[in-house]
Amino acid sequence: MATKVKKLRVKKHRVVLNRSAGGDTAITVFMVILGILMFLPMYITVITAFKPTAELSIVPPKFYVVRPTLKNFIDLFTNMNQTWVPVTRYIFNTVYISVASTFGALVLGSMTAYALSRIRMPGYKVINSMIKYSLMIGSTITGTYNFIIYCKIGLLNTYAISILPVWAGTLGLYLMKNFIDDNISDEMIEAARIDGAHEFTIYWKIAMPLVKPAWLTLIVTTFQAVWAAGASGYVWSENLKTFNSAIAAITGTSASAGGAMAAGALIMMSVPIVVFVVNQSKIVETMASSGMKD
């Protein structure tokens, strides 16, 4: 400490920020503990799914598998096939509902987002704040009267009941609108208008290719919500139910099904996780414009 004035540490022409070694260590330790705590249940799901019956009944349970087996998965599917609806039907339902609801949400959401962000017809501010406030309303609150509405328009016990409400989702739309606000300039749209392009052409050919990250995010968030939604209380025909509601029904009833339950949970969680991992960077990119102004 020759000089009294504190010198800034400089490394490769960049100012090194003030960081204490103690702080770094404490934070690392905190992160590792928290990370383990967060990851442990997921890890236990995986190992339990592969444990044979003998290992499931060891006291206390081990944190590793000695003889991994696929028996739990086989049990799960055998059980599932015992109902009069074949497994393939459940899988078809899940795929059909996921694709239809995600596709609709994407087309409707992106079109609305474009119009609200770049056409700005009179009244767009009211609609924007309605969408913003709708994020504050939990599904329980709207759910109260959705039942009556479903009744009146005859949606009970149909595929549509799992699909149409997703099209009205606002989170994906909100993210998409903010992303368009931040990434597409009025000048660009204006230039296209002067060239005589129709609004739908501008939306589809100019705006949409520029907001692909937001597309992916909308697809992923919608898909995750649909996937996690499981059984709707308003669908009672077995042949309209989804794969995840079938898994939930089986793992919920059989008392000794620890292994099969973990196997079901593993199947259920691996799909959205894979979808997320593949799209992670695009999603984070989209979230960069998620901020709520004013």
């Binding site: 990370g35 799901t45 995750q224 939930a248 949970a265 259920m268 969680m269 996780i273 992670q280």
Partner: peptide, 20 residues
Amino acid sequence: VTFIFYAPSISGSAYTIFTI
């Protein structure tokens, strides 16, 4: 690390593991 912390929230009904 993002993946580790985010994973539980997207796993749908992964919390059923807590029954085990």
